[in-house]
């Protein structure tokens, strides 16, 4: 059993990535070493990654870093990632102003120290600030209000 759970998990993650990329690479033409197809290079890399993943686990067994994984800020993570997804999904349709407001509002709530009024205030201030800098200052060509909003 490895001394370090961290190393074991990291190794497994690399092996998983290696296998996933390797499996996908098999779907592309491999060619030969002399005339490489699109799948050749990724397949070789995927193989190396799996080997390195095993290496990480072995290293962990011999000289693990120890220490537990610690906590994961589930709520914060969900809010921040959700805020980003919302931005990507809505910015073209809702326009920059409302999208950014919601994005910042959600992101701000990720902190347990921020309540709803503070988050709203922060969202308002940052939205105004960003519009001033990006749209008026740098000339980013994004509509402030998008086509989804008109009835």
């Amino acid at each position: 059993m490895p001394k370090s759970v961290k190393d074991l998990l990291a190794g497994l993650a690399f092996i998983a990535f290696g296998l996933a990329f390797g499996y996908a690479a098999l779907g592309y033409e491999l060619g030969t070493a002399l005339r490489m197809g699109p799948g050749y290079f990724p397949l070789v890399l995927a193989g190396i990654l799996v080997a390195l993943g095993i290496g990480v686990i072995v290293e962990g067994m011999l000289a693990g870093e120890g220490g537990d994984i610690g906590t994961v800020p589930w709520r914060g993570a969900a809010l921040i990632l959700g805020a980003l997804v919302f931005f990507g999904y809505a910015v073209q349709g809702l326009g920059l102003a409302p999208t950014l407001f919601v994005t910042v509002f959600l992101a701000a709530l990720a902190s347990q120290r921020t309540g709803i009024p503070t988050a709203a205030l922060l969202a308002l201030a940052l939205t105004a600030f960003c519009i001033a800098i990006f749209v008026y200052g740098l000339g980013v060509t994004l509509p402030l209000v998008g086509p989804w909003l008109p009835v």
């Binding site: 326009g95 409302p98 402030l144 209000v145 998008g146 909003l149 008109p150 009835v151």
Partner: peptide
């Protein structure tokens, strides 16, 4: 804020209906 949003929405609606 609400008024701003309403104004923005109205403006956009006008453009859309043009």
């Amino acid at each position: 804020m609400r008024r701003l949003l309403l104004a923005a929405a109205a403006l956009a609606a006008m453009a859309g209906a043009a």
